[in-house]
Each structure stands twice: as structure tokens, then as C-alpha cells.
């Protein structure tokens, strides 16, 4: 968040604008990854990542809602008074969640059943409301789009990472394709809620280790 405010306070520099735009996208993938760095939206992260397909679908659905609500909030930011902003953001988010619910039903009913109530619960995913409040309400449409696309992609990658590992270990398959011979004993705990916590913990460990390694490699700042 402090990084974003820092951006606003700087005078616009046309030459650096492209780099800033790229940063808006990249930050969601790595430095401010919603799951591994910010620990946001833990409910769907743990509940629906029992298969790679479910993880990918939930990630894409959340990304769609995030992008559309960021675009609309940013477009209408001049017309939304402070007192009613949260109500307006929730209304906008709920609209796109309803839309995504119908769209998933139209694409694949079985997938819709597998995701169950968690599609409707995207409304209360704090990632989406936090991006509307902290970023889209203060930035241009293009920047808000890039921010949402970056955060959404980071969220989707995280869900896919969890879903893949849990499906491989818990079901011996990936996207429904059997990877092992029949004598492979499925590690059922991995597709149960407990397995979600184990795998999330391992991914956070790997993520932090990689980040630490990268920081150690970077030359010291001379500021």
C-alpha cells in the first residue's frame, strides 16, 4: 500500500510511465502476491484447491471480477462520495460475481457444482474490495486494469500451484490425467482441508525462500 501512495505523490514522468505501468502488473505476481505475500482470500485458497481444474477456475473467476470491478470503480470514482463508497463497491463486486456465476454455469455445469457456494463467496473476498478501495478509487482506468490483471494473475497462479500439488498427491492425477500406475496409493489427506494447510505452508516457505535469495543477490542500495 505504501508503495502505491508513494507512486501518487511523485510528479508524472512521461519517460518512466511505461515502467510504472509494468510495475503495476508485476507487483501482483511476485512482491505483493495476494496469497503468498499478503495472505488474502484464504477461504477459496484452502477450500477449492483440491484439484488443479478447480483452482484454475476459481482463480480465473476471481480475476474476472477483480478486473471488471476495478475498471468500473476507477471509471466512476469521481461520482462516488466517500460516505457511500463501500456500499457502491460491494454493489459493483456483487454484480460481477453474479455475472461470473451465470457464465460458469453456461461453460460447465459440473465445474459450477464443484466450486459450489465459493463462487458466490467471491463477493466477500477481501482481495477484491481492498484493490477497489486502495487502488482503483485513486488511479486511472488503465492503471487499475493493470493492477487487477497482475493481482488476479498472481492469485490464479497461487491457486493453480496449490491445486496441482494437492491433486497430484491426493488423487495421482493432474487436470484429470492419471500420472501414476494403479498401485499408487492416493494421499487422501492432501485433498482434505488439512492438506490445504500443509501445501499452503510449503508454498509460502518456498516463496519466501526464493524472495530472500533474490534480495541477498541484489546489490546494496546507496541511498
Amino acid at each position: 500500500m505504501s508503495q502505491e501512495i508513494h507512486h501518487h505523490n511523485q510528479a508524472p514522468v512521461p519517460a518512466a510511465s511505461d515502467t510504472q505501468d509494468t510495475n503495476e502488473f508485476i507487483k501482483g505476481l511476485w512482491l505483493q502476491n495476494p496469497v503468498f505475500a499478503q495472505a488474502l482470500g484464504m477461504c477459496p485458497v484452502l477450500a477449492v484447491t483440491n484439484s488443479a481444474q478447480n483452482g484454475l477456475a476459481m482463480g480465473l473467476a476471481t480475476m474476472f471480477v477483480l478486473i471488471m470491478s476495478n475498471i468500473l470503480v476507477s471509471s466512476l470514482r469521481a461520482f462516488i462520495p466517500r460516505q457511500v463508497r463501500i456500499a457502491c463497491y460491494i454493489l459493483i463486486i456483487a454484480t460481477f460475481v453474479t455475472a461470473v456465476d451465470y457464465i460458469i454455469q453456461a461453460i460447465n455445469l459440473e465445474l459450477h457444482k464443484a466450486l459450489g457456494a465459493f463462487i458466490s463467496l467471491i463477493v466477500v473476498n477481501c482481495l477484491i474490495l481492498s484493490r477497489a478501495e486502495a487502488f482503483a478509487s485513486k488511479n486511472t482506468v488503465s492503471k487499475s486494469f493493470l493492477d487487477a490483471a497482475g493481482m488476479g494473475t498472481g492469485f490464479t497462479i497461487a491457486l493453480l500451484c496449490l491445486g496441482s500439488i494437492r491433486e497430484i498427491l491426493g488423487n495421482g492425477s493432474l487436470f484429470g490425467w492419471q500420472l501414476f500406475a494403479d498401485n499408487f496409493e492416493n494421499w487422501i489427506v492432501m485433498i482434505l482441508p488439512g492438506g490445504g494447510f500443509f501445501v499452503l505452508g510449503l508454498w509460502v516457505l518456498v516463496f519466501n525462500w526464493l524472495q530472500q535469495r533474490q534480495e541477498n543477490k541484489e546489490p546494496p542500495s546507496h541511498d
Binding site: 461520482f79 462516488i80 457502491c88
Partner: peptide
């Protein structure tokens, strides 16, 4: 301003939901 924002956004949202 508050009525305008709430009603206006409500109408946009209703249009989006009905269309989808």
C-alpha cells in the same frame, strides 16, 4: 450526490445482471 451514486450504480448493475 449520494442518491445519484447509489441509484446510478444500481441501474448499471441491474443492466449488467439482466444482460448476462
Amino acid at each position: 450526490h449520494m442518491y445519484r451514486a447509489m441509484v446510478g450504480i444500481g441501474l448499471i448493475c441491474a443492466f449488467v445482471i439482466v444482460s448476462v
